[in-house]
């Protein structure tokens, strides 16, 4: 049961980095890729339809973390509080910015998306650095964490760029291609790298020693495993529905 619970947590966490990470990376690059009003709108509209559906992977990760490893979850989140505060704050700002754009809000909200994405990506770098250095209950010093954080930032950028080549059109696409070249499968490649990193970092946690009781796991794990194919199928459906070119934010409804 613990093994399955760990696999479940890993699946959601890695899924978040692949899907949500693409959004964050694209958000970081938005000012570079989209110049001028129409292009910016185009870039935003690429993220808009799916960003909530991407982020639920993180919500589910934290949910499974609480459910299957309640004590450890509390230790990690309260221990790394100084990093999780900017992480969640950046995330909020990003989402609010995107949402206001979708609902027809002012163009300045684009800067919230970009700023929030950078803060969230940097905070993730620090979280992963702390986990990788076996310091899950106290953020490691900036000196130790700087290199990993920098690497994670670059990874988010690369992943966002690869995503951009899949979704964008016109001048923003050309700008993205100028950086990536005509590399095929670049999104698959960055996805594998970012997912592996997430799993390596999460794998440092002493999960199996901190699993919840069997009664609790026997409820949570089978139910989740049964619905997992359904969740994945719904996501594939959604992924196919969003095509290159995105959607006009104001025409969302």
């Amino acid at each position: 049961m613990e093994t399955l619970a760990t696999a479940l947590l890993g699946f959601f966490f890695a899924g978040y980095f692949v899907l949500g990470g693409a959004d964050i990376g694209l958000g970081m690059l938005a000012p570079y890729l989209g110049r001028g009003r129409d292009e910016r709108q185009h870039v935003t509209s690429t993220m808009a339809p799916m960003f909530l559906a991407n982020e639920v992977w993180l919500v589910a990760s934290v949910g499974v973390f609480i459910g299957a490893f309640p004590e450890l979850e509390g230790d990690v989140l309260s221990g790394l509080l100084p990093v999780f505060v900017p992480l969640v704050a950046g995330w909020m700002v990003r989402d609010a910015g995107l949402w206001w754009r979708v609902a027809g809000g002012p163009q300045a909200a684009d800067w919230l998306v970009t700023g929030g994405s950078w803060v969230a990506a940097g905070s993730w770098g620090w979280v992963l650095a702390s986990l990788l250095n076996d310091s899950p209950t106290e953020p490691i010093s900036p000196g130790l964490g700087a290199l990993t954080t920098l690497f994670v930032l670059l990874l988010f950028l690369a992943h966002g760029l690869a995503f951009a080549t899949l979704r964008l059109t016109g001048a923003p696409l050309q700008r993205a291609l100028r950086l990536t070249g005509r590399a095929r499968y670049s999104f698959a490649l960055t996805s594998v790298v970012i997912a592996t990193l997430a799993i390596l970092a999460g794998g440092r946690l002493p999960l199996s020693e901190h699993a919840a009781s069997d009664t609790s796991l026997k409820l949570l794990v089978p139910v989740s495993v049964v619905v997992l194919p359904l969740l994945t199928a719904a996501h594939l459906w959604l992924w196919r529905l969003v095509r290159r070119g995105g959607m006009q934010p104001t025409s969302l409804l």
Binding site: G67, A68, L220, S224
Partner: peptide, 18 residues
């Protein structure tokens, strides 16, 4: 957490995610 944690987990996986 062992008592109510699973309900929060199922909220995210079964309800909110979908």
């Amino acid at each position: 957490g062992d008592v109510f944690g699973f309900s929060l987990a199922l909220e995210t996986v079964l309800a909110f995610f979908i």
